[in-house]
Design a protein around this nucleic acid. Structure first.
Length: 362
RNA sequence: AGGGGAAUAGUACAAUGGUAGUGCGGCGGUCUCCAAAACCGUUGAUGGGAGUUCGAUCCUCUCUUCCCCUG
């Protein structure tokens, strides 16, 4: 597999090109591998900008998107087409079948493999996508506490996600169903009172993960998280967040969903259903998919499904923005401040990258 | 024009002669292995005027607006 040590060694050639002394320290450390991140709420226009950026900076794109990793989910995930890629290499797109499970931990693992290749080619990795958690997992090199040294690289079944104990999880889920959320929450209180205080008892997913973590490692997840939270970014990164006025984003979401329908979202989901996809799958929890599945099963009218997609996508965009506000090192790109001029945005981004020694000053 | 009905938060609907509720939306937040997921918090209304009453969103009158029926 791929250790951190390997990655750092692969960096050497790249690092030599970073001539700028480290004045600012910490975040802009040129000894760290370079990385550009372009994120932002859904439908702001990340994809389009990313191509121009990759061109200008001689980069390769890594998609940080929890739906675009899946094959056969093109329209609903607003996946870039091969034509739109304009020859720029894209990673982390179409790497899984829809019935496979995916997670932030897996994302990070797979990204590390992509990164080594990109650095070998002396290209700049440009992480593009709206899944803030994935970006964070990569940027901070979060350890998800797999705990075991077993060689899982050969395991064919993706169910065997390291650090995830399926049987124990299932048992907890069953227990919650039988005895209620409060029961699990009080179990958590016994082993990890700190987590119990910060996780609401209704948030069963997280209560279960905290219990599972303790079960697997013998350590309270709160202590683990505290340690992880202190980590500095593992890369010399420019973390851009493209943003626009809220009403504009909402308006674009509505138009984009209508466009997806015109392009055949219903047919796409029908095809997935014929392949055996159902709502229990991680992939089918994606916006646009779960609602159209509900329509196909007669639970919603098409009109209701469409309105629900639009509404939930607006909610999603709002949550994304909440996430980015919390990330300290974000460089905001408010489109209105650039008068909606993409060239100006691009110029600004390149300048920021030079300041941090990610691009050579020219 | 005549007759009838209705006006409560952005919206849909409750309720009571004495602190006006709920869903949806809007806004804010949490997040370290399902994150396009899951969860939490918060905002905001009785159409205008007059009367009865200790007190009116509720009862009465009037104005305004909307809906239905007749012509």
């Amino acid at each position: 597999m791929f250790s951190d040590k390997d990655r750092v060694e692969n960096m050497d050639s790249r690092i030599k090109k970073c001539g700028i002394p480290d004045k600012t320290a910490g975040m802009h450390d040129c000894r760290k591998p370079p990385m550009v991140i372009l994120s932002g709420p859904t439908a702001v226009g990340k994809t389009k900008l990313s191509i121009a950026l990759a061109r200008a900076a001689d980069g390769e794109i890594i998609s940080a998107d929890s739906c675009q990793v899946y094959r056969c989910m093109d329209i609903g995930s607003a996946k870039i087409t091969s034509g739109e890629m304009e020859g720029i290499p894209h990673h982390m797109i179409n790497i899984l079948d829809p019935w496979e499970e995916f997670s932030a931990a897996l994302f990070k693992e797979k990204c590390l493999q992509c990164l080594s290749g990109i650095y070998e080619r002396e290209h700049i990795p440009i992480v593009v996508g709206g899944t803030g958690f994935y970006v964070q997992a990569l940027l901070r090199d979060i350890d998800f506490g797999s705990g075991d040294e077993a060689d899982h690289s050969e395991t064919p079944a993706s169910q065997d996600i390291p650090g995830k104990n399926g049987a124990y999880r299932a048992w907890l889920e069953e227990l919650a169903k039988q005895e209620g959320a409060a029961r699990l929450h009080s179990m958590l209180g016994d082993i990890d009172p700190v987590s119990a205080r910060s996780i609401h008892q209704n948030n069963q997913k997280r209560v279960i993960r905290a219990l599972e973590f303790f079960h697997l490692t013998g350590e309270p997840i709160s202590r683990h998280n505290e340690r992880e939270r202190e980590k500095e970014p593992a890369y010399n990164a420019c973390y851009f967040v493209l943003n626009d006025q809220r009403e504009r984003i909402y308006e674009k979401i509505g138009m984009r969903v209508d466009e997806m329908l015109r392009q055949g979202l219903v047919a796409e989901v029908e095809r997935l259903r014929e392949m055996g996809c159902h709502r229990g799958m991680v992939s089918m929890q994606g916006l646009g998919y779960k609602e159209i599945l509900a329509y196909l099963e007669g639970e919603l009218s098409l009109e209701e499904a469409v309105e629900t997609i639009k509404r939930d996508t607006r909610h999603f965009a709002k949550r994304q923005l909440t996430w980015f506000r919390r990330e300290k090192e974000v460089i905001w790109l408010n489109k209105d401040e650039f008068e909606y001029d993409e060239d100006r945005i691009l110029k600004f981004m390149l300048e920021e990258m030079r300041t941090r020694g990610i691009l050579e000053t020219s």
